[in-house]
Amino acid sequence: MIPDWMKEVEVGPCKCSAVHHGKKGFVGKTIDGIFGFLEEAFVSESYSKRSGLLQGLDPRAKLVSILAVVFATSLIGDLKLLIFVYALTLLFAYLSKIDVGFFIKRVWLFIPIFAGIIATPMIFNIFIPGDPLIGVAYLGTGAHLGPLALPDSIYITRQGAVAAVIFTMRVATCVSAVVLLFITTPQQTLFKSLRTVGVPKVYVLTLEMAYRYIFLLMDLVREMYVAKKARTIKARGIFEEQRWVGGRMGYTLIRSLDMSEKVHMAMLSRGFSGDVKIMQEFKMHNRDYVAGAMAISLSVVLVLISHNIIRI
């Protein structure tokens, strides 16, 4: 049945040796990225199952409390107060048995992306005029950038630097609070608790399903890349590789569309008729009411202080 050339078996010693060839290719990097994501999801899930302070609270109380704190934080203009709230989030992370080092790293990893781009221009006198702190460049009189007139010299201002620090700190505090909510609550309960703040059932269901299928599609992508790695005998040109990636993206999209259709069929088959019915399994305890009341009170006090109604 098999052709003659296939009957040849030749296993001789390899004339080459395995040597390091520099940086990892995009296939390797993508596989690493996928494993990184799965690992992070796993670590977050393990934190949410620990018996810490926040894990013991009803997710609805936690969601409302954290939202209140985030709202109040966004109104605070005082750096000391922001540092105080940030320290509070660290304290709660510690009390919830979360590795504080991991927590800080996780929050500050995103800050340069969220806040850095917005905050960096603020420190220069082009955007916020003020007292010079550090000189950057002298442009001379009548400098222009296209139609924009530039000042004689560009420097970092004291006021700009303070505003940038306050802005960054505010973002960091808000992100800390939200990350705290995410890693102390299992995903499925977190999504469900969104119902309490008025998110319609159908969005909650869609969110839950989307989260569940991320893992499946992630696995599909991982398998494709691993299969590609297994069959890559020699490196190909960048355009060839890009074409391959484009093709796989299209394939993943088609697979996900096909799957969504089948998932819908599976739902119909079990009686789904467009009206979403989900189980509410939450029970509020006294401690949840106390926690909610405390968080809301703290938020009110923060707002009052930041507007100089209460002076400290």
Binding site: E208, R212, A266
Partner: peptide, 12 residues
């Protein structure tokens, strides 16, 4: 269904 994954759409 043949493919279990299309039938398992809930979080738990």
């Amino acid at each position: 269904f043949q493919n279990s994954d299309v039938q398992l759409f809930s979080p738990t």
